[in-house]
């Protein structure tokens, strides 16, 4: 019922303003629910800033899924075996599906998908910078699965316990479906690594290019992250950027060894005292530069997205017009 309830949000907010006394009580109830690890549901009162943060984060996440289709779709038509072609198609399809789940979650907060897409297309909302890097060889499909999806999963698993119910539920579904994404990437790279010398080199080159951008996916260091503290307090976020990044590095090191591939960081080594791997400094100037729109593919990705949307307009209009003409559908089956 979550999404349906969104329509009433505006109304209930107006009510809240009138009953000023209630605001404190509402805030109290909200804080108590979050503290008790209960979920906030769409029609519950919530602070405006909480709502805005969620819309921003869920929208960015949804946009990332659909923009993220492009770098991999780039290889569907060139997949080197029919088995790989089927896997890749199913994976890119999942990403469309995940975008759909997430837009639906955002809609429960009173923002329509059309509105969010409009913000994406006009550059007012962002998507993950990682998708502004190009997929230059087939091995990039593997590196994206292993590293990019791996980083995403590390980020996303804690979101299954996010304080906002619809977002948490979407993430449960997404994480369940994503488990195959990372495995297929790893398997793809393994086949290349154990293949011909050319294939091995292709795999190593892809890992070299995707490693650092993947580490940047966890966001800026904790002391520079502008939204982190509040998001943690609201339990939208459960772990800090640096904590998740460290977890990811620790997971990847032995996986890279099994792959027979190296990670492009001379400073990467086990620190017995910390019980974690130390790793080299991340070039944050690159991160901010790509975020600002200067990545290798920013323009290309957005242009293609806008084009698909614009070229689809007549189709969406046609279906809407047809529905208006034929209010009573032809089958009209009732519940069964």
């Amino acid at each position: 019922m979550a999404t349906a309830a969104a329509r009433d949000t505006a109304g209930s907010r107006a009510y809240d303003v009138m009953a000023a006394d209630d605001t404190a009580a509402h805030q109290h109830a909200f804080d108590a629910a979050v503290a008790a690890d209960e979920r906030i549901e769409p029609r519950d009162w919530m602070p405006d800033a909480y709502r805005a943060t969620l819309v921003r984060q869920i929208a960015q996440h949804a946009h990332s899924e659909i923009i993220g289709m492009q770098p991999e779709a780039n290889w569907i038509t060139r997949a080197p075996s029919l088995r790989r072609k089927a896997i890749l198609m199913a994976k890119v399809q999942d990403e469309a599906g995940h975008g759909l789940y997430l837009y639906s979650a955002a809609e429960t907060l009173g923002t329509s998908r059309e509105e969010l897409l409009d913000k994406l297309h006009s550059g007012r909302q962002k998507y993950s910078s990682i998708f502004n890097y190009p997929t230059l060889t087939w091995a990039d499909v593997g590196a994206i699965g292993w590293l990019v999806d791996g980083a995403a999963i590390t980020n996303q698993v804690p979101l299954c316990r996010c304080s906002y119910g619809p977002y948490a539920r979407a993430m449960v579904r997404i994480c369940k479906e994503e488990s195959f994404h990372q495995r297929q990437g790893y398997e793809l790279l393994l086949a290349l690594s154990k293949g011909t010398p050319e294939q091995h080199a292709m795999a190593q080159d892809a890992v070299d290019r995707w490693w650092w951008p993947s580490l940047m996916m966890f966001g800026p260091p904790d002391d520079e992250s502008q939204h982190s503290a509040q998001s943690m307090a609201w339990k939208i976020k459960r772990h800090s950027n640096d904590e998740l990044r460290q977890r990811f590095v620790d997971i990847c090191v032995p996986q890279a060894e099994s792959l027979g591939l190296s990670l492009p960081d001379p400073d990467l080594k086990w620190n017995e005292e910390r019980g974690h791997h130390d790793f080299g400094a991340i070039d944050w100037s690159e991160f901010w530069d790509v975020l600002k729109g200067n990545g290798p593919c920013n323009e290309q990705r957005l242009t293609r997205r806008r084009k698909a949307h614009e070229e689809g307009a007549w189709v969406r209009e046609a279906a809407a017009a047809h529905a208006a003409k034929h209010m009573n559908g032809e089958t009209g089956a009732t519940r069964a």
């Binding site: 019922m1 979550a2 999404t3 759909l100 789940y101 639906s104 809609e107 998908r113 979407a170 579904r173 969406r316 279906a319 809407a320 047809h322 529905a323 034929h326 559908g329 032809e330 089958t331 009209g332």
Partner: peptide, 13 residues
């Protein structure tokens, strides 16, 4: 049980 939501122009689609 409720699975989620989606957009469509009409019931059949």
């Amino acid at each position: 049980t409720h699975a989620g939501s989606l957009h469509a122009p009409d019931a059949e689609l």
